[in-house]
């Protein structure tokens, strides 16, 4: 049987206080307790990248972190990236390039892409591919995702 703990954190700009089982992982907490179903569960062992989200400024795997470890943290999920202005251009580029098909990898893929772009990553296709190599996509073959990232880097540089 699992014990529970009180946690307090910020999720997409809102303060959240919940009592959670200590064994509950972060992505399950966000999905099941908070209804933030945009972060997806693909492998539950840190390989596929579908649950990639931002915790205190770093992109992490939501399946490899416990909810109790997020106590005091500031978390942004795809819902936060989507509704704030941070990824509007990336979303548009994903749509324009059809850089998603089934959409299941997309939240994590966009989080990793955003990490690369915001860190000042250059429009080098192999560097982008390398950076995204922790996010599995079965549908696209990745080329259109790389195209989308290259376009956004160009657009932001032109501003």
């Amino acid at each position: 049987m699992s014990q529970s703990c009180d946690i307090s954190l910020r999720v997409n700009g809102e303060t959240v206080r919940e009592r959670v089982p200590v064994r509950l992982n972060l992505v399950d907490f966000l999905r099941n307790s908070l209804g933030l179903t945009g972060s997806h569960v693909g492998c539950e062992h840190g390989v596929c990248g579908a649950c990639t989200m931002e915790v205190d400024g770093t992109m992490v795997r939501g399946c490899l972190m416990l909810a109790v470890q997020a106590d005091g943290s500031d978390i942004t999920t795809i819902e936060g990236f989507g509704e704030h202005q941070r990824a509007v251009d990336l979303q548009a580029a994903f749509k324009r390039n059809n850089a998603l098909q089934c959409g299941f990898c997309t939240p994590g893929m966009m989080a990793s892409a955003l990490e690369y772009i915001e860190a000042g990553g250059v429009a080098d296709r192999s560097a982008i591919r390398e950076h995204l190599s922790g996010n599995y996509c079965r549908c696209t073959g990745y080329q259109s995702i790389v195209d989308a990232v290259v376009e956004v880097i160009g657009e932001r540089a032109a501003k």
């Binding site: 972060s39 819902e79 989507g82 979303q91 059809n98 997309t106």
Partner: peptide, 17 residues
């Protein structure tokens, strides 16, 4: 462009889980 892609890039897909 796929009209339904906007939902998916905003994390508003509706999968069974």
């Amino acid at each position: 462009e796929r009209p339904d892609a906007q939902r998916l890039v905003q994390g508003r897909g509706q999968y069974v889980d």
